[in-house]
Design a protein around this nucleic acid. Structure first.
Lengths: 342, 342
DNA sequence: CTGAAAGCGCTAACAA
DNA sequence: TTGTTAGCGCTTTCAG
């Protein structure tokens, strides 16, 4: 292994102290321009590469931010990540990314790895099934900021970036009612996840406000994956009277339901109006186009990252303390799948 | 800032030397079991957290692997990343991820950041427009392994993980010919990218082998994005005689074309047979379902990461030297969009 | 099986 | 504006 070029070599080369070299290299203002240039030149000549390990060791910060998502291969999450990456890179932070694959154990393990990697901050969208946030305790204790997005824990003192899920589904439900739907089924994921719990509320409120009676038979929970359509439609068509409105908590599942319905000769939107969620590409590609809720995923990534970094850059580190929840605007997009030509 | 617990504190606590503590903590065999347990206990009691900066500084490796993709928010890339994450985490490596957003400048900048972050290895899918790999020189010089996947540079000595793009499109073209198509248009991305250049070859070979004459008017290059359908279909319908087969290099664009065609009353597959590429979710959700090429993206992520790590773990570090290209199996999936009931 | 000592490369007090 | 000095916390010879 060739010996590394260090600031000492540069110092020797230009006849200055390592301190000055260090300062010049990190753009410290108290270095004469001439000196700085001389040093920068020498550094380039010698093929110097700064050693971040030494620097991090000394400075006690890694300049990297950890991100834990439930699944990397999801249209929503990858869009969030893209937004985060953009902001982080701009600000000079590295992104260490891992996925919990919806498992609490994996999330715990990932959290520990992030802690041991000494990330300067952590962004998390929680894995499904529990609200346990014990494993973030080491972060809280060391005052390392943890910011949740989309799937945030309930009753916590951490900041979260979310959309108003309740309002979103409220609007969608009201829309279906306005389209003349008499029996609206709501399909969603695990109710232990805040996102779905909130949506259920929105659904109930909207029914209530429009004089409908809530019936738990109209609520179906499912994985919402690509194959969910068959399962869901099977259940729906067994209901009497047959539902005529369908509110599905993601577009993949909504598209899958749409296919299953068409296969059975159920006409959309005439016999069954559908609203999805997320405004994924797929909602614009199926036929009829899916009405859906626009979820500003890329923007959510940007906002979450921006806030975390602002907090890190803030001397007093109180930005996140003062904020509790940042809510982004989502909006109902009405397309053919729910528009009835009554 | 509370003082960190170090191995010195542990050493003092149990009355041993830091050396022994270090050894015990990293499972060195030459430590008595009793001693090791005593140390492990003390470490836990004191709330010890190992300092990877110091460790990395000393060991000269980061235990992290860099990944540079063109775009994070792509179904294909996020699936690759998911595969990589799984393997990396299993092997105890962190993943530092960044995107070049198809810009060479950004790719260069990302590469430098990765280099300065001292990743132990680098996985890259190249940004579009150039074949320049000068910016990886620092890695080559320091013998840090760089492994390309999907979009690999031409004529290089680096290992790459790819599919046989030529064969894939050859098969698809042959399939369309067998379905009775007389004029087949091939839509692909920037031909400077190996992936598309190879596909064009496959298209040409297949035409040749079946007695068709290649006509450059039948080749269209495009962004292949969500809105590409209108542009592409516009061009196609101007051709005389009108094409009856369409080979599109990704499913998003293929779906978009499908919509544009239907809008104009062109029947698929009767008037126009379509084959896409990737086997994205969307190919199974549009109507008619898209014939496509199955691209083993998740698997590609696993394989690329596995090979990189094997190389890193290999004492002689010659695994990648000996390999040049790893080709994964892809396969034509025939669905309704290209099946003619002749 | 355990320990002493040296040093990885950098930065931040403090001093000049 | 520049320099001296002292670590940050760990691992690794080498020696016992």
């Amino acid at each position: 292994m060739k010996k590394e070029i260090t600031i000492y070599d540069i110092a020797a080369n230009v006849g200055l102290s390592p301190t000055t070299v260090s300062r010049a290299l990190s753009n410290h203002p108290r270095v004469k321009d001439v000196t700085r240039n001389k040093i920068l030149h020498a550094a380039k000549d010698l093929g110097y590469q700064s050693n971040i390990f030494a620097s991090s060791l000394r400075k006690r910060r890694s300049n990297s931010i950890g991100v834990i998502v439930p699944k990397l291969n999801s249209a929503f999450q990858s869009s969030v990540l893209a937004g985060m990456e953009k902001i982080a890179t701009q600000a000079g932070y590295n992104l260490i990314i891992s996925q919990s694959v919806e498992s609490l154990d994996k999330e715990i393990s990932n959290t520990n790895i992030m802690f041991n990697s000494r990330v300067d901050g952590l962004l998390v969208s929680k894995a499904g099934t529990t609200d346990n946030i014990e494993h973030f305790q080491p972060f809280f204790q060391k005052n390392i900021p943890v910011l949740f997005f989309d799937r945030v824990p309930e009753n916590n003192h951490c900041t979260g970036v979310v959309i108003n899920n309740t309002q979103a589904i409220y609007d969608a439900t009201a829309h279906l009612i306005k389209q003349g739907c008499k029996r609206i089924v709501h399909v969603l994921g695990n109710l232990q996840i805040n996102v779905y719990a909130d949506r259920l509320k929105g659904y109930k409120y909207a029914l209530m406000d429009h004089g409908f009676v809530f019936d738990s038979a109209n609520v179906i929970t499912d994985e919402l994956d690509e194959d969910s359509g068959e399962r869901i439609v099977e259940k729906i068509l067994k209901l009497h009277p047959r539902p005529d409105g369908l509110l599905i908590s993601n577009d993949t599942s909504a598209a899958s339901c749409l296919m299953a319905l068409k296969k059975r000769g159920v006409k959309v939107p005439e016999d069954m109006a559908i609203v999805g969620f997320n405004n994924d590409l797929i909602s614009r590609m199926v036929e009829p186009n899916l009405s859906t809720i626009n979820y500003p995923s890329y923007h959510m990534g940007e906002v979450a990252m921006k806030n975390l970094i602002n907090h890190l850059d803030d001397e007093n580190q109180e930005i996140l303390q003062k904020t509790n929840t940042i809510t982004l605007r989502s909006a109902l997009i009405i397309r053919e799948s729910s528009q009835r030509t009554t």
